[in-house]
Structure formats: C-alpha cells, structure tokens
Design a protein around this nucleic acid. Structure first.
Lengths: 231, 231
DNA sequence: CGTTCGCTTGAGGCCGTTCAAGCGACGTGG
DNA sequence: CCACGTCGCTTGAACGGCCTCAAGCGAACG
C-alpha cells in the first residue's frame, strides 16, 4: 500500500476530492518502524499525528509500578494522536509498534490549515473524535464497573462479530494480539487473563487452541459480558 | 443568566459574531430541572445536546450490581452530550441533575447544519471534543493504574488549584459535590472514600471539616498522586 | 543446545467491596 | 416541641477478586 492508497483508504479522508487528497499528500511523510519501536513518549511535544499504513500500533499508559494499560490498538487505515492538534501540545500517552509497521505522519500545523479550509475534513475529524470518545467511555465503564470475566466476555463477543468464522461447534475467532497485550488492553495482567480463560474453558463456554478461540455458549457469554455474576 | 448570556459565556461559542449567536439562539430552548431529575437515560435516542446555564449535572454509568461511576460533572457554561451529533444516535450514559438546574438544549440536526456552515464553530467543537478525550484518557489511567489514595490525592490537588484558598496552615478547598458523589467520581464507594480520607487525616497530610479540606502537606500529597506507594 | 520469550499454574497477601450497625443533622408530622 | 423518619457519613468485620511472587513448561531462535 503506497502513500496515496493509504490516505484514500482511511475513513478520515473519505468523501474528499482527488485534489484535496493531493494537498494532504503534499504535507505527508511515511516512515518504517521495527517491531517494538517507540513512536512517541507520553508528555513529549506533539508535532504531528499518524496514520497506520501497515502493521499495528499500541497506545498505552504506564503506572509508577510498571503496570501497562493499553488504551487502543490501531490497525491499518486508522489514525491516532489526532486530538493533539486541537488541545494540548503534548502527547497524552505512549505509542509503540506491535509489529513491523509503516506509518504516515502529518505535521500538526500544516494539517490544521487544511482543516480550516475544508469543511468536509472538519466533519470527518469530528466523527473520528466522537468515535474515540465512545470507545473511551466504554473502557471507563468496563474498568470501573465490570470484573475481568465480563471484560473478557465482551471482548470475545466483539472480536467474533468482526472477525469470527462459523464452525461446526461455534464461532471461531483469532486474537488480534498476544495474550499479554490482550491482558493489558483488558486492564489486567497475563496471569489473571490465563486463569480467566481457563475458567471459561472449564465451564464449557469457550475452547482455546493457541490464539484461536471458539465460542461454544454464546448465551452465557453474553450474560457474563453484561456484568451478571457467574458461579 | 438568560439564554443569550449563557450561550455567549460558553467556550463552544467563543469567537462567534452576534449574528451567528442569534442563529444558534434561534434553535435553542431552555428548561428547568429539579434536583435529582433524569435528563436522559443511557441508550435513549439522542435528539439534542445540552449547555448548563445554571446548576450542576452528572454523567454516569451504572453496573448490573448497581454501582455508579461518574464520568463527568458538568458546571455552568459547559456543554455535554456533544458527541452524539457526530456518531451514534443514542446517549452513551445517564445524565441527572445534582441540583436545581437550567439547561439549554440544542437540537442535533439543526445544530449540525450550523456547524457545516460555520468553520469557527467546527474548530471550537473539535477543541471541545479533544479536551473531553484528554479527560477520559486520564480517567482510564487513574482507574486502571492507580489506587484510591492516588486518585483522591490527585483530585485534592486539582481542586485546590482551581478553588483553593490559602490559610495559615495550608491551602483550603471545598468539595464541589457530596462525598458520595466524589466517591463515585473517583471510581469507588463512600465507605472506601471515608476510610481513605481518615488515613490521610491521621497521617497529618490533610485536615477535614465537613466538606472543607485543608492540605497540610502538599509534597506528600503530590507523591501519592503520582502513584508512589505510601506506608 | 542453551537462552529467551510467552504462557501457565500455584500460593499468598492486599486492597477494596459487601454487609451491617451506629451516629448526627435535618425536616416533617403528630 | 418532641418523636420519628430519612439521609449522608462513618466505622467495623469479613469476604473476595485480583495482583504479586515464584516456578515450570514448551516453542522459537540464534
């Protein structure tokens, strides 16, 4: 996927004319990153925002004790750190590649000029930020009000909706990151995730083979995701 | 504060001409709410967003077990539920007045038209959403990575910066809501908050008199807020 | 073949919640 | 004016979910 293609495939730029895309392309750059490379640190001065052309990026926070909480995993075609253009001059979290990645970077000031001139771009950006808000809203809800089982159940359901393959026994899904990363995303640690998976497996709700999971009992899983207690 | 004044004093409408303000005023309505009144329920179809003219509003989620997590407390001049205009047709949380309040409501569709025609309004809205994102980012960080003592310490520090009064012994601040509400905002319950306050009091870090709190040892409080463990 | 890495499993402990009771302030009605 | 209810807050005891620490295991890789 080249720069032009990548820009075109991103939601943020949908509905723009070729001429407008060219304007954006003119200020964009692309760069390769190795796996596990730091893109920016929390608190660092923000100069640009990013689009993932290929690979995978995680946004995360770290506690004083070293525990990590993943805020978001960014997949190809998606943007991140958009919000730095409109408030605050510093990145609010850490960002790191999960695999070999190619990232398009767009300088903050130049892009801000384009937004001011382009109403459609403004509206797309508003929609993008709104979606982020909803996602974070749900993350807060999960962390504060639900236990690990609920969060895992909810994640499995969502993942199965997006990438699930029906099989004889149930819907099969593939974890989109390592179990350690998943744990961090669910606001817990790998040990606890491992135990929780085992619990669901022993209860006959799911089946686990490496990072392939088959949902055997969707009804019970739905109940758990809603926060009901499970014995 | 009348409707025109309230609109004018809101950040969202800063930098607009009188003519533009009139356009907004034309589609706005105002309504009185008693204390504890529900403004909208989570999942209800979203028809408009709101500005607080007077009073106080809480946005919150509720777990299946009945535990409440406050996402945000909205004060006069501030807006809420803006994001419903750009993504999703349903309110993502509950909303309820904390005191007798007057709220301006702006119908979603009509306001969207104004935004499309007004670049400055778009930019203001982008800035508003960005701030919300930052706030939620921090809430996630606190809930996931910090214990109750840290969260309380951070809250006290922020509150003292905003509304603190210097006294002989230290900075005095007033809790902007009941302790039960504060607990919900900090992601805990009133019992735990009560115990945590007592712990800080006994350690000589703060002094508590009703909802007046004096910070005696800001240095230690800062350490606690950063997430360092306290013995 | 040794090392590293991701994952799993167990034991132990802590933080925060749940359940329960008590207290003072406040408002209402007898 | 007092009795009684409610409400917000506090305190105690006990439980439980999740984290910490520690060890072991298989797979990948140099």
């Amino acid at each position: 996927m080249d720069l032009h293609q990548a820009l075109k495939s991103s939601f943020l730029f949908s509905g723009l004319t070729e001429a407008e895309l060219s304007q954006i392309q003119a200020i964009a750059g692309i760069k390769q990153y190795a796996k596990g490379e730091l893109i920016f640190a929390e608190g660092k001065e923000a100069t640009c925002f990013y689009i993932v052309a290929s690979g995978q990026v995680k946004l995360y926070k770290i506690s004083a004790q070293g525990k990590e909480q993943i805020l978001h995993i960014v997949n190809p075609g998606e943007t991140f750190a958009e919000a730095v253009m409109f408030s605050g001059g510093h990145y609010p979290a850490f960002s790191e590649t999960l695999s070999h990645s190619r990232l398009i970077h767009l300088p903050k000031e130049a892009f801000l000029q384009l937004i001011k001139q382009n109403p459609q771009l403004s509206l797309n950006m508003l929609a993008t930020l709104s979606k982020l808000l909803r996602r974070l809203n749900r993350l807060v809800e999960e962390l504060s009000l639900k236990d690990v089982s609920s969060r895992l159940a909810q994640y499995l359901i969502e993942q199965s909706r997006q990438t699930g393959q029906p099989t004889e026994t149930g819907v099969q899904l593939e974890l989109d990151a390592s179990k350690t990363q998943l744990a961090s995303r669910l606001g817990t640690i790998s040990e606890t995730l491992s135990r929780t998976l085992r619990k669901l497996k022993q209860a006959g709700i799911i089946q686990v083979k490496g990072n392939l999971i088959t949902i055997l009992d969707l009804d019970t899983l739905n109940e758990m995701a809603s926060g009901a207690k499970y014995d």
